[in-house]
């Protein structure tokens, strides 16, 4: 009878789902917390299969801000970190949560905004640009999520001799990832600070004709350093320290460095390898 046939079908379906869930073979896997820029640009998608081929380790990652990533390291919910907030990272190790910190690559931050440039910041120095934005009360999108980018942005306001805005109406804290924040800036016709890699990705999504343009770049304060951090095995005995070291070494190896340098989007290099 038809009904029986359906019941059988349903049972087979459930069984299959069940087996599929358990059949996730326990291969070696490494759980990483990282920043949105490494995922959004596609760098990790590009590196993951190559890393797995070399080491047999399946790399998994959750992309949040650097602040949340460090927190996940503190609570031992991940095995390794790939983040970009040097001062916070050093503090993390001083506090005994992290073991090793290896600088891997950098890119730089840029200030982007609408072509019309209402605050007139194009070509100005970083400090002048931020002062102009504040003076004109032009819309400025901040990540506002305690990420590496957010931490850097706060440092830059201070370095420019300004108080870090917080409740000002023109200062919008999105609480979201970098691409999301750029999308908000585009919708609101405002300025934001982003790493160059994410900007290139954003520009490529708009077929090279994005409405937000790079207006300020090249300031030495805008350097954005990425590092791999392993966790302190004494604090996190369950974290896979050995695998984390393998990942860190692979990223810093000549091969890993070359791969990072070869990662292009729209013909542009997104990350610059700089391991010792």
């Amino acid at each position: 009878m038809n009904k029986k046939w359906i019941m059988n079908w349903v049972i087979v379906f459930f069984m299959t789902m069940g087996l599929a869930a358990f059949a996730q073979a326990e291969t070696k896997s490494l759980m990483m917390a990282t920043t949105t820029s490494t995922e959004d640009t596609g760098l990790l998608d590009y590196l993951m299969p190559l890393f797995e081929k070399d080491t047999g380790i399946a790399l998994k990652w959750t992309a949040t801000g650097t602040g949340k990533a460090l927190k996940l390291g503190e609570t031992c919910d991940v095995d390794v970190l790939l983040v970009h907030a040097p001062s916070a990272e050093k503090k993390f190790i001083e506090n005994g949560f992290g073991k090793d910190r290896k600088e891997i690559m950098y890119n730089d931050f840029v200030i982007i905004g609408p072509e019309s440039d209402p605050a007139g910041i194009k070509g100005k120095s970083l400090a002048d640009a931020l002062t102009a934005i504040k003076g004109k009360q032009a819309q400025f999108m901040s990540r506002g999520d305690d990420s590496g980018t957010h931490k850097t942005e706060q440092i830059l306001w201070k370095a420019s001799g300004l108080q870090v805005p917080d409740k000002e109406t023109w200062y919008v804290q999105t609480g979201q990832g970098m691409l999301a924040t750029i999308t908000v800036a585009q919708e609101k016709n405002g300025y934001t600070m982003t790493d160059r890699g994410t900007y290139i990705k954003y520009n490529s999504q708009n077929k090279g004709n994005a409405s937000l343009k790079i207006l300020v770049e090249g300031d030495k304060n805008l350097l954005n350093q990425y590092s791999v951090l392993t966790l302190n095995a004494a604090k996190c005995p369950k974290a896979k320290y050995d695998l984390a070291v393998q990942f860190s070494d692979w990223m810093a190896s000549p091969k890993g460095q070359k791969l990072i340098g070869d990662f292009l989007l729209m013909g542009e290099r997104l990350f610059f390898p700089n391991a010792d």
């Binding site: 998994k60 959750t62 031992c76 369950k238």
Partner: peptide
């Protein structure tokens, strides 16, 4: 289920 939590040792965070 976070490592800090009471069920932390099962490593269930970030899993299906």
């Amino acid at each position: 289920i976070s490592r800090q939590g009471p069920l932390g040792e099962f490593g269930l965070l970030f899993t299906l």
